[in-house]
Each structure stands twice: as structure tokens, then as C-alpha cells.
């Protein structure tokens, strides 16, 4: 399959304004991230809170402007597009957010929420709007009768389905899913994941799936990108691949199996996640890494792609 998405050396620096008592500080929320996403594949972006997953998603959709790097979507260089061209392209790349409550306006009925993308894009659907919305609601497993309900009348899982219906309205090819189930109960999470699997098969969608839950990512995705403090530290080509980066191994060993016969021995982990501001030189994981050497504290390891299983580490496992 050809690549639907190519991300090269993408970076985002945030600067906090200085004040009379503080000096201005800056941090790399996303730091030189590169990967390819072939059509119809599902890539999982995994990492702990604050490692830059959501920022990466926003950069890819160009909802925020990068500090450097390039994004190619279906052969188009996104950063070269004008705002008008970008708006048109965005119909084909949509995002579903973690919080189903923030994504839809509480004042409007669901029919309006689902029809909104058509209005924003100035697209007239082929069928009458009511019919189009009913079809979209059905596609995500909602009773079309709900179209006249208000958001407060439906559950969190139903709201997340509405979020997905909206994202699907303009028939995108790429869905960026930013922790779409993180605020839901597991019984509802399982419904939503099942729905996403069905939609992918039916519509031939490509997903970029963000989560901090490695078990869920292993279950749902074809390949996995592991992030730590803004950097992609490892790209697992498939979900069975063993960890080569010490951080990925720590992450795997910290993820429990839902089976009392498979208890883990939890190795003590020294140190804490360093502050993302003013990171010291070298590998950001060095203070917590059992393999760290002198080299690790002076030189930042680059992501080496020689073997098809990319890892950014001086002493991979």
C-alpha cells in the first residue's frame, strides 16, 4: 500500500512568556518525529502523559503550526498549502477527541452536531441533510431517532459515537483518534473499539490511534510508535515485536495482563521523568535507564532505521 501519511522531522517548540520574576522558557513538545503510515494501516502512538501525543496529532492536521519538519498527506505537502486549500484537505483527515463532552455543543441537537462539518466545509450532501444525518447515525450504531436529542440526554459512549459520526460525515480517508475511549467505562470502550474496527473494514479507513494504554494499542493497532518526552524512541513494526528500547521495555513491564497466572515481577525504577523544560543533553531516559553509559549523557541517540525496527538508543536491547 502507498503511504497515506509521511511525517518527517516534525517539531513543535512552546515558549512560556517570561515575566518580571521568571525568565522565558521553551520546550520541545514534539522533537524531530518521523514515520510513515501506509493506506489502511493503523498506527498506535503510545507514551505517558505529556510526551507530546496530542501535540503531534494537532501538528499532523495542521491545527497548530510546526516549528519545523514536513507532513505529506496523500502526496500533498501540507505545509505548503494556503488556509483555503488546507480547509478543503481537512475534509479528508478528521480528528476524534478524548472528551466527548467538549467536542459537541450542548445547545444544539445531534442533527445539527452531525450536519456541522457539511456547513463548515460548504459542502452540500448528495442526499437531503436529514437523510444523510440519519445514515451517519446508523453507521455508528445510534438510533436515528436520537437526532432530535440534546447532548445532555445521551450517555458518554453515545456522545463519542456522535463524535465519530461527525468525523465520518465528509468521508475522510484518515481518522486521527486522540484517546477516544479514555473517559469511558471499559464496557463502553469495548463497544467503541468494535465500532472503529467495523468502520475501518467497511470504509477502508486509515487510523492514527493515540493512547497511553499499551494493551489497547497492541490489541487495536498494526504498528506502534513509542514516544518519550517529545521524541519517537522506537517504532515497533508489528505488535508482537519485542522491545529494543529500554523505555519501551519499562512500559511493557509496567502494563499488567488481565490474568492472575501472568503476574509480573515489577523491577524498581529509579528516578523520575525529567522536566521537559531545559532538558539536559543526551538521552532523556538516561536517569532512569539501567543501560545508560557516559555516551548516553552527552549525545542524543538518533532514530536508527537500519533494521526496519527503528530505535533511538545507543545500547538497544
Amino acid at each position: 500500500m502507498p503511504n497515506l501519511l509521511e511525517v518527517r522531522d516534525l517539531s513543535k517548540r512552546f515558549t512560556s512568556a517570561g515575566g518580571p520574576f521568571r525568565k522565558a522558557r521553551s520546550m520541545h513538545a514534539v522533537n524531530g518525529v518521523s514515520f510513515d503510515l501506509p493506506e489502511r494501516r493503523v498506527i498506535g502512538i503510545v507514551g505517558e502523559s505529556g510526551c507530546g501525543k496530542s501535540t503531534l496529532a494537532r501538528l499532523i492536521l495542521r491545527l497548530i503550526e510546526p516549528s519545523g519538519g514536513a507532513v505529506t498527506f496523500d502526496g500533498d505537502d501540507l505545509l505548503a498549502k494556503s488556509p483555503a486549500q488546507m480547509r478543503k484537505l481537512r475534509a479528508r483527515m478528521q480528528m476524534v477527541f478524548q472528551d466527548p463532552y467538549s467536542a459537541i455543543d450542548p445547545r444544539y441537537t445531534l442533527i445539527r452536531a452531525v450536519a456541522e462539518p457539511f456547513e463548515v466545509q460548504g459542502v452540500t450532501p448528495e442526499k437531503p441533510m436529514a437523510e444523510e444525518v440519519a445514515e451517519l447515525l446508523e453507521m455508528v450504531g445510534l438510533n436515528p431517532g436520537l437526532a432530535t436529542s440534546y447532548p445532555h440526554q445521551i450517555s458518554g459512549g453515545q456522545k463519542q459515537r456522535v463524535g465519530i459520526a461527525r468525523a465520518l460525515a465528509l468521508r475522510p480517508s484518515l481518522l486521527v483518534l486522540d484517546e477516544p475511549t479514555a473517559s469511558l467505562d471499559v464496557s463502553v470502550q469495548a463497544q467503541i473499539i468494535g465500532l472503529l474496527e467495523d468502520l475501518r473494514a467497511e470504509l477502508g479507513l486509515t487510523y492514527l490511534f493515540i493512547s497511553h494504554d499499551l494493551s489497547l494499542v497492541k490489541y487495536f493497532c498494526d504498528e506502534i510508535l513509542v514516544m518519550y518526552l517529545g521524541r519517537a524512541v522506537e517504532a515497533l513494526p508489528d505488535t508482537a515485536a519485542p522491545a529494543r528500547h529500554p523505555y519501551t521495555r519499562t512500559l511493557m513491564e509496567s502494563t499488567f495482563e488481565p490474568d492472575p497466572k501472568k503476574r509480573r515481577l515489577i523491577a524498581p525504577l529509579e528516578g523520575e521523568v525529567p522536566s521537559p523544560f531545559d532538558l539536559p543533553p543526551g538521552c532523556a531516559f538516561a536517569d532512569r535507564c539501567p543501560n545508560a553509559s557516559g555516551l548516553c549523557r552527552t549525545e542524543t541517540p538518533a532514530l536508527s532505521t537500519e533494521t526496519g525496527h527503528a530505535v533511538a538508543c545507543h545500547h538497544p536491547i
Binding site: I193, G194, E197, S215, K218, Y219
Partner: peptide, 12 residues
């Protein structure tokens, strides 16, 4: 409902 990663790739 619990994803088991690879252990059992059966549908949730």
C-alpha cells in the same frame, strides 16, 4: 471487554 494485546487477538 478487556484488551489482552496479543495473548488472545479475539474481538472485544
Amino acid at each position: 471487554c478487556i484488551p489482552r494485546g496479543l495473548v488472545e487477538a479475539k474481538r472485544l
